[in-house]
Amino acid sequence: MRVKFGDILQAFEFADISGVVECRTFVCRQTGKIYYQFDQDDLQELEDDELPDDIEDETKYLQIPNSRDLDLGKPLVIAFVREFLPNDLDDVRYIFSKRGAYQKFKGLLSRRGAIDAWHDYRNKARERALRDWCEIQAIEITD
């Protein structure tokens, strides 16, 4: 199947959000079409098409991962800090041993003037991980 990378990335970002709306995203193994499933059994596709009744059939539809599935949470933060803010490594490890870690981490990034570097690092890592995931899943990416 062939899928535009931008479509996979958008579906990943929807799957990655947390808070008020929970969302799972799927790609059809045959057509490459992306489907969005929102919380509370309110099933809908992004363009308001109906979801297939068999969306849970893993032989037909592949669930698109989120950051946790791709190990892009705390391990990515630690790798970034080791490379760009090595003097803050112990502080960041401590920050991530408590609740509210990302908010505190963002505060540290702001104080160090490293927000843009973090966003660039995270975005490149996400793209690399998603492209690797697509390759493993035999999804042919078009740019």
Rank of each mutant, 00 (worst) to 15 (best):
P75E: 09
F105Y: 12
R82S: 11
G73P: 09
P75N: 11
S67F: 10
Q103G: 12
K98E: 13
D88M: 07
T59Y: 07
I64V: 15
F84D: 11
D69T: 07
A101W: 02
V77N: 03
L72H: 08
L109V: 03
R68W: 09
N87E: 12
D88S: 14
A79T: 15
D69I: 02
L85P: 10
D71Y: 08
Y94W: 13
V77I: 15
E83P: 08
L108H: 02
I55Y: 05
D90H: 09
L62D: 00
L85G: 07
S67M: 13
F105P: 04
D57K: 01
A101H: 04
I95C: 09
G100D: 02
P65Q: 04
L109R: 00
V92Y: 10
K98N: 13
D53H: 08
Y94D: 14
G107C: 03
L72V: 13
I95A: 06
L62C: 06
V81A: 05
P86H: 10
D69R: 09
A101N: 06
Y94K: 13
K104A: 07
I78E: 12
K60L: 12
I64H: 14
L70P: 06
T59A: 11
R93Q: 15
L70R: 06
I55E: 01
Y61T: 01
R99V: 03
D53E: 14
Q103P: 04
K104N: 10
L76I: 07
N66C: 12
K104W: 03
N66F: 07
L109M: 01
K74Q: 15
G73F: 06
N87W: 02
K106L: 11
K104P: 03
D91V: 09
R99Q: 08
N87T: 13
S67W: 09
L72A: 09
A101V: 02
L85C: 08
L70S: 00
R93H: 14
F80M: 06
F105I: 01
D71S: 08
S67R: 14
K98W: 05
S97M: 11
L109T: 02
V92L: 10
K98I: 00
Y61F: 15
D91M: 08
F80C: 10
D54R: 02
F84C: 10
I64S: 14
L85D: 07
D54T: 04
D53G: 13
